[in-house]
Amino acid sequence: MSDATNAAKPAALPIKDAGPRGFLVSSPPHLAAGATTQRIMFEVLLAMLPLFGFALYMFRLSAIVLTVATIAGALAAEALGNLMRKRDQSSVYDGSAIVTGAILAFSLPPSLNPYMAFLGGMVGIALGKIVFGGIGNNLFNPAMVGRAFLMICFPAALVSFTPTAPMTAAGVDATTMATPLYAAAKQMDLPSMSALWLGNTGGCLGETSAIAALIGGLYLVIRGVADWRQPLALLLTAGIFAQIAHWIAPDAHPGATFHLTSGAMMFGAFFIATDYVGAPVNPWGRLIFGAGVGLLVMVIRLFGAYPEGFMFAILIMNSLTPVIERVTTPTPFGGKVEA
């Protein structure tokens, strides 16, 4: 199938009448766009830089420590998995484990113990990816599997947020600190709109700044790395849902802008819901997937026991992906082939 193997040893070409000089035989096309899995993963990491930069400003050292810990955990699990399955280590270098680790780190609270983060990265790759057969075969988003594992094992650590240096400087009470969503669920005072957009609030490592997530996300969409369908459907559904809830009970629920800019919404819409493997491949399937995640996030936020539900929403929709794909198989341009 690959002519590269032939290129290495042209003398062994299986041609009977190659004449004085044989040429490579391969199936067209003979050109390629030059995209590789590695390159795609690199672009995703590049798009995460604004978020990382903001996390550095907000959470200082813990941003670096947590990110390094999750990535190290993810890479370790990937390498171990390859060793156990007697595969070559190429999947370590394709960057997918690094992306998984980074996404997991960005969805963890900054005060988390790095050992837990390392464990989360390992479990995410091991149970979320390796057991299904490695890259491309996992049913669930590995980063979210890792986070779910941490959520089960260390529930208290995953929901405790302490204010950081930039915030205490701005006069935030140093002993208690609530995320915007927690505040909304408990009917407390909400942070200002500009704080939500910028990210001057409590929250997970990469989730506080909506604007940084938007910049990175738009980069991915424009570069064609991420599909526009999941984020659009997701944000639209969640926004409409939140706005309707706000109209029905204005005192209990803040409006659409609050929900779209708080918690994991913006980050998740562009970086988690656009994850290739767990989402459907069909255009309509991706719209349904995005809308489903948006709906579930809002249901959990408004009616669930947790203030944030992005992880659950993604995992539930991941499990529905095969069904969605089945019903959204595209019709060929000229109609179904007649039997």
Partner: peptide, 26 residues
């Protein structure tokens, strides 16, 4: 240098083949 070199790796389900197929196939 002007030809593509193919090293088949697992499908990552990016959906580009579906998005670019002029006949809307999968």
């Amino acid at each position: 240098q002007e030809t593509a070199h193919w090293h088949e790796t697992p499908c990552i389900r990016c959906g580009r083949c579906i998005d670019n197929c002029p006949l809307y196939l999968s």
